[in-house]
Design a binder for these strands. Structure first.
Length: 415
DNA sequence: TGTCCACAGGAAATACGGGGGT
DNA sequence: ACCCCCGTATTTCCTGTGGACA
């Protein structure tokens, strides 16, 4: 057989076995806003999120009769489509307003990563083109003033979509105070605030004086059920994958697993994506078994990815805790962990924090789920947090590996 | 019943690093 | 180039605490 035909055949079989035809549809980050909306529209067209869309529409309807809708608070866990649904509708209203001659614009303030009040305001100012990006060194008042100046000349409806409000860490109060009390009084436009949050109780510990000013409608996004997820996944498969290489039942399985565990559409698509990648690498169709393995892998990588993007101190602390040899008779206490941590800091040349600060880090690690920490009293033997690690051994190894790399140490040259 | 361990965790003080004003 | 101001991170200082043990 000719070499050329051999190669051609080889390429042909590879092409036939290709699973991912359009990678971009497996990752929303890579899609343009317009494309996202298109995908979304198709999903909405099959009646997913129907109720929420109706409610949103009726909430904003007063705009079209020159009335003033109240503020809105949208609840829902991550991946339930809060952001994307609200944005889609705002976009729709925008063009509708344009058609009807109603002045309206909207701003999407994305706080998906936790940030302090200052950052949030700065981001808002950037979106409005009212200020450059500052790191520090400018007062909150100054920022607020600039934001106001920027929109002073605008008189139409002004929708401010604050995504994940509860992520404003230090002083959510002053942030809200500005938005709720100060801004509406100083600018001529009709301000409509839309908040989203994944916690139902985010308003619980805000200043009651602000709270009373904040008259809001509420809207709840329930996690997707298996049926919704099936529709969403089906669309992605159709757009991104070679349907011949997806075994029957895979779609249903991913939908079932995802709805049972979290009801998060993004994670469901991620699982699909991971399965497809693994299948392609192995040159086999996506099977049910492969989905299981992809699921395990995602679970394993989750922690490593999280610690990789964390501050150095957190990394050092976690590594030290994971490195303390477990002794069956005595659980680890804060003191033990702190000793290990200071030793590690000495080794890698990191300035060690005080025990007080370390204690806060331990609580943080507990919050993120890396470790289990609970306060326990041993009578005259003191009162302390007891630290337990409940991660599977492979994950522990992987985390330690990642952290060592972060500290420019060769993980293999330890012995 | 009182003591005292080994911290927890709140509050205030201080350090830091950066930007504006001059 | 200098100083001052700001927000944030960390330290310092402190009071509180559940229960085993004497």
């Amino acid at each position: 057989m000719q070499v050329e035909t051999k190669i051609e055949e080889q390429i042909q079989t590879l092409l036939n076995n290709t699973i991912i035809l359009n990678r971009r549809y497996l990752d929303d980050e890579q899609l343009q806003r317009v494309e996202q909306f298109k995908v979304l529209k198709e999903i909405f067209d099959v009646d997913v999120r129907d109720k929420e869309i109706r409610e949103l529409s009726s909430h904003f309807a007063p705009m079209f009769r020159q009335d003033h809708p109240v503020h809105l608070s949208v609840y829902g866990k991550t991946g339930t489509g809060k952001t994307v649904t609200v944005l889609y509708l705002l976009n729709l209203f925008h063009s509708l307003c344009l058609k009807k001659g109603v002045e309206m614009k909207y701003i999407h303030l994305d706080l998906s990563t936790p940030k302090p009040c200052f950052r949030a305001l700065n981001d808002l100012a950037c979106l409005l083109d009212a200020a450059k990006r500052y790191k520090k060194g400018i007062s909150l008042d100054e920022l607020m003033g600039r934001i106001e100046d920027r929109i002073k000349s605008y008189t139409g409806y002004f929708v401010l979509f604050v995504d994940e409000v509860d992520h404003v860490r230090t002083d959510l109060d002053s942030f809200l105070k500005f938005l709720v009390k100060r801004l509406p009084q100083t600018i001529p436009s009709r301000l409509i605030l839309v908040f989203s949050s994944n916690r139902l109780n985010w308003q619980e510990n805000i200043d009651p004086r602000i709270k009373s000013f904040l008259k809001m409608n509420e809207l709840f996004f329930a996690p997707y059920n298996a049926l919704d997820l099936q529709k969403i996944l089906a669309l992605r498969i159709e757009k991104a994958l070679n349907p011949k290489m997806v075994e029957s039942g895979v779609l249903e399985k991913i939908a079932a697993v995802s709805s049972r565990n979290h009801g998060d559409a993004r994670k469901a698509v991620e699982l699909l994506s991971k399965s497809a990648q693994m299948a392609e690498k192995e040159g086999v169709p996506i099977t049910l078994d492969l989905v299981d393995r992809a699921y395990d892998e995602i679970e394993r990588d989750k922690y490593a990815a999280m610690i990789k993007s964390s501050p150095k101190q957190l990394q050092a602390a976690l590594y030290s805790i994971l490195s303390v040899p477990p002794s069956s008779h005595k659980p680890m206490q804060t003191g033990d962990a702190y000793n290990a941590y200071s030793a590690f800091c000495g080794k890698v040349g990191l300035r060690a924090l005080t025990q007080r600060a370390f204690s806060d880090i331990v609580s943080e690690l507990d919050m993120y789920g890396f470790i289990q920490a609970r306060i326990l009293s041993h009578g005259r033997y003191g009162r302390t947090k007891e630290i337990a690690v409940k991660l599977p051994p492979e994950v522990v190894l992987k985390i330690k590996h990642v952290v060592l790399l972060e500290f420019d140490l060769n993980p293999l040259a330890r012995f």
